[in-house]
Write a protein that binds this DNA or RNA. Sequence first.
DNA 1: CGGCGGTCCTGTCAGC
DNA 2: TGCTGACAGGACCGCC
Length: 273
Amino acid sequence: MPELPEVETVRSGLEMALKGATIRKVTLRRKDLRIPFPKDLAQRLEGQKIPAIRRRAKYLLFDLASSDVLIAHLGMSGRFSIEGKTPKIFTAHDHVIFTLNDGRALIYNDARRFGLMTIAHKEELASHSLFAALGPEPFDKAFSPAYLQGALQERKTAVKVALMDQALVVGVGNIYASEALFLAGISPHIPAKKTAHQAKAIIAAIRKVLGDAIASGGSSLRDFIHVSGETGYFQHHFNVYGRKGDPCVTCGEHIRSTRLSGRSTFFCPSCQK
DNA sequence: CGGCGGTCCTGTCAGC
DNA sequence: TGCTGACAGGACCGCC
């Protein structure tokens, strides 16, 4: 469940449930996800208190009392769930189990294994290979019209592809790229440079779709934590994503779908120019 | 060197 | 009902 709003929803749910908790034991049920687990991962986590859980781009950052930071990415299918004290039968894709001092268990499950989990000292984060090339956070003031205009100006690729590039801005994935461009009234395959003058509208659209999605995810946090799992894109409605052939909410025209850089893309041929 | 295609992996769903 | 193929929210790698 991995664009920024979903990661933020997971972050806030995890922080609510885990802030101040201590990790007693870590069980790695395989040796890697997308990349190998560091050899000392479990050892560096065990006995550590978790003062806070943060997010950078689509990465979850678990601060530890030791000043190490547990870095987790959900990939396409990664999920965290929290189990109570009653023992649980682990399933095939429960890859990492964190047993807490209070007896609860935090479980990382990831069927497709596109996620990753690693650890770094907090001083190393900014220069870490996973983070060094990332662009600004969409809600940060660094993601300004002047910045985006300049960034779009130097790209020939389709604007939708540019918006999904985490070096341009982080957190926008395949769904919200389509949704933001619908709100901005811009066709997804227009070359990025031709949309540079609309930077301000694009920023507003991105913030609107991400902000609304975070707000709707937040309303279901209770389910996420207590029912264990499933915070997908449930109960969130999209204007264009997944609505091929359906009427546009604005003009009634049929929503079209196409592929850009291998990713399914949805747009209204009448509202988006 | 920007940009694109292929690739990692499993689950699900449409269509036959 | 069962099989097959296409496709899925991400991001890295290698090639032009």
